[in-house]
């Protein structure tokens, strides 16, 4: 669509902006080029179909998607409460929710270990009652990923809930909609774009998660060794494998971002 009123003559962009912009772009592109230059193209297929890589890829997809689902189920209600319910200490709770964003993931992983480790505050009773052991298990990976990634969803959804026109919900109520119906048929559809971008951010953060995972869940191939962990291990001894895994991560991330581009991110 062309809007005649918004057409402008495009003057030459000022060099003072163009130069830092180019350097900024290079910051992203040069490492990628470095990765491609170092890629052992001949052996690539063998490397990425090796057991280490396929195990890690499967585990990464399972744990990042699992963390996204858990974040959806827990994070949306949390965002709703933070946005809509007034209670004492709300700003403190909001701060706690965003803490994992600034906390070093290793610290997060350690904290998880103390809390839900086998001898942890919650972990001990949990194991005695249900037999569930979280550390060094795939479920533990999902938990670690959720811990670091869910704040992205909560923040995005809470912002959308605060800024949406609540009178739409009032209108729905006057039409006889219960609070649950209002949430399901008005609130969630209205904030859907923010919800989806929040989910994408959450997934992306979980997919790249390293520190909390390695601290809390360890590095067991096929059980807790996700792609980032596999890269880290491979860098020590098998450079080619590390490069191949990195390429797989770049490819998956690009596929997701490009696949969603224009759907959920505003394009020009």
């Amino acid at each position: 669509m062309t809007n005649p009123t918004s057409r402008r003559a495009s003057p030459r962009p000022p060099i003072g902006l163009l130069l830092p912009a180019a350097i900024g772009l290079a910051l992203f592109v040069v490492p990628l080029v470095g990765l491609l230059a170092r890629t052992p193209w001949a052996d690539l297929l063998d490397l990425v179909t090796g057991a280490v890589v396929t195990d890690a890829l499967r585990l990464s997809l399972v744990s990042s998607l699992g963390a996204t689902v858990v974040s959806l189920l827990l994070g949306v209600p949390l965002a709703w409460v933070l946005a809509r319910v007034e209670f004492p200490g709300r700003s403190l709770v909001r701060g706690l929710v965003t803490l994992p964003l600034v906390l070093p993931p290793v610290v997060g992983g350690a904290a998880l270990l103390f809390a839900v480790g086998r001898r942890g505050l919650v972990g001990g009773p949990l194991e005695r009652m249900t037999g569930l052991v979280l550390p060094f298990s795939t479920a533990g990976v999902v938990l670690a990923c959720t811990f670091v990634a869910m704040p992205f969803l909560v923040i995005t959804v809470e912002g959308a809930l605060r800024t949406m026109d609540r009178r739409q919900e009032d209108a729905a109520a006057t039409l006889g909609a219960s609070r649950w119906t209002v949430l399901r048929r008005v609130t969630l559809p209205v904030i859907a774009p923010s919800l989806v971008s929040g989910l994408v951010l959450t997934w992306a953060r979980a997919f790249g998660e390293f520190g909390a995972t390695v601290t809390f869940a360890g590095n067991l191939q096929g059980r807790t060794q996700t792609l980032p962990l596999a890269v880290f291990v491979a860098l020590e001894s098998q450079r080619d494998t590390a490069v191949a895994i990195s390429l797989v991560m770049v490819a998956v991330s690009l596929a997701v971002l490009v696949g969603l581009r224009g759907r959920w991110w505003p394009t020009s």
Binding site: A172, T174, P189, V190
Partner: peptide
């Protein structure tokens, strides 16, 4: 509101955009 049976027409209609 949901149990009142009061029909409201708002100034800016407040139709559901979705």
């Amino acid at each position: 509101a949901a149990s009142r049976h009061v029909g409201v027409v708002f100034q800016d209609h407040l139709l559901f955009g979705h």
